[in-house]
C-alpha cells in the first residue's frame, strides 16, 4: 500500500475526567474514501475536531503529510479541507465573498480557482447572492467549495449529505469519486445516513464509545451466501446434508462465488427448474448494526 497521507497515532482525549477518545489509531491513504461511522456520542466529531486542530488531544498525535499537527500547525493544516458539522458561512455576505474570504487565508488560491470550484459544485447562478437566501443543499455545496479551494490532499466531510436531495447526493457522490480518483485526494466522510455512505466509500472505520472497533475494506465483502428459487424445493433440500434456511419464496444457500457454476450444473442435471440465483450482499447498515449492537443505532435520527 502507498504511504498514508494522514496518520492518527494513539489519539486520546479526556474532558473533565471523562475518557472520550481511547487509543485511536487510523491511517488515511491518497485516493481512498473512508466512511467514518459511529452512533451519536461515539466520538466522531471529537476525532474530527482533533484532526483539524480545533481541539487538542490529551495524548497522541495527528501527522498530516509528514507534519505533526501539534508542532507544525500551519504546514500540517494547509493540506486539509474540512466541513465540521454544518457548513456555517457568513450569511450576511454573498457566497462569492465567503469564498474570497477563505481564499485569502490560503496561499495561492487565484480568482480562476474560485470560479472553477464554483462551477464544480454548480453554484454559478446564485454565487453572488447572499448566503442567507440559500437552501440547505446550496449551503452544503458552498461548504464543499470552500473546503476544496486550496486543493487539499485530505478532505474531511462531517455529515456532508445532510440537506441534499437524492439527485444532489448522487451528484455529490460522483464528485467525491472524481476528486479521489483524479486528484488523488484522501477523503473521510462521516454520516449517519449509512446507506448513503455505503455507495461512496472504499472502506469504513467504525467507532463506538471512543474506540475504533472495526476498519474494513468494502471490496472484501464478497458474498458467501446466495438466494435461490427453484421449481422443486424438495429435491433441492435433498441435495444438501444440512437443513436449508428458508427465506421468502426461496432458500439461502452457503456458497462461494467459485462454487456457483458447478452448483447450477448440478441443479440442471438433477432436473430442478432454476428460476433465480442471486448473491446476498449484506448492506453496510446490517453489518453496522451487527457490530455495534442494534440498540446503539440512535445515529439514525
Amino acid at each position: 500500500m502507498t504511504k498514508p497521507i494522514v496518520e492518527i497515532k494513539n489519539l486520546n482525549k479526556k474532558i473533565k475526567g471523562k475518557h472520550i477518545i481511547k487509543n485511536l489509531n487510523l491511517d488515511f491513504y491518497p485516493g481512498q474514501i473512508t466512511g467514518f461511522l459511529g452512533p451519536n456520542g461515539a466520538g466522531k466529531t471529537t476525532t474530527i475536531r482533533m484532526m483539524t486542530g480545533l481541539m487538542y488531544p490529551s495524548e497522541g498525535e495527528v501527522v498530516i503529510d509528514g507534519h505533526m499537527l501539534s508542532k507544525n500547525y500551519e504546514k500540517a493544516i494547509s493540506n486539509i479541507g474540512v466541513i465540521v458539522e454544518n457548513p456555517e458561512m457568513y450569511k450576511f455576505m454573498s457566497g462569492y465573498k465567503n469564498l474570497q474570504h477563505f481564499a485569502r487565508m490560503h496561499k495561492g488560491v487565484t480568482k480562476e480557482r474560485i470560479d472553477e470550484v464554483v462551477a464544480q459544485v454548480g453554484l454559478q447562478n446564485r454565487i453572488h447572492e447572499k448566503v442567507k437566501t440559500y437552501s440547505l443543499g446550496m449551503r452544503q455545496r458552498l461548504g464543499l467549495a470552500q473546503a476544496m479551494l486550496h486543493r487539499p490532499k485530505f478532505l474531511i466531510l462531517d455529515e456532508p449529505t445532510n440537506g441534499l436531495d437524492p439527485a444532489g447526493i448522487r451528484e455529490f457522490r460522483m464528485y467525491l469519486r472524481k476528486i479521489a480518483a483524479e486528484d488523488n485526494v484522501a477523503i473521510v466522510v462521516s454520516s449517519h445516513l449509512l446507506s448513503e455512505i455505503e455507495l461512496m466509500v472504499d472502506r469504513i472505520a467504525i467507532i463506538q464509545n471512543g474506540e475504533l472497533i472495526d476498519i474494513r475494506e468494502l471490496e472484501q465483502q464478497v458474498a458467501a451466501q446466495y438466494y435461490i428459487e427453484v421449481g422443486q424445493p424438495e429435491q433441492l433440500i435433498g441435495l444438501f446434508e444440512e437443513p436449508l434456511e428458508k427465506e421468502k419464496g426461496g432458500y439461502v444457500v452457503n456458497l462461494t462465488k467459485e462454487e456457483v457454476p458447478a452448483f447450477v450444473r448440478r441443479l440442471v442435471e438433477s432436473g430442478i427448474d432454476l428460476y433465480t440465483i442471486q448473491p446476498i450482499q449484506k448492506g453496510l447498515e446490517d453489518q453496522f448494526i451487527e457490530m455495534t449492537g442494534g440498540g446503539a443505532i440512535d445515529a439514525i435520527r
Binding site: 483539524t52 486542530g53 480545533l54 500547525y73 500551519e74 504546514k75 493544516i77 494547509s78 486539509i80 474540512v82 465540521v84 458539522e85 454544518n86 457548513p87 456555517e88 458561512m89 457568513y90 450569511k91 477563505f102 487565508m105 490560503h106 496561499k107 470552500q146
Partner: peptide, 14 residues
C-alpha cells in the same frame, strides 16, 4: 455564536 469560528480556525493561520 454562528459557528463560523470552525471555518476560521481550520485554516493554515495561527
Amino acid at each position: 455564536g454562528t459557528g463560523t469560528i470552525k471555518m476560521l480556525l481550520t485554516r493554515p493561520v495561527a
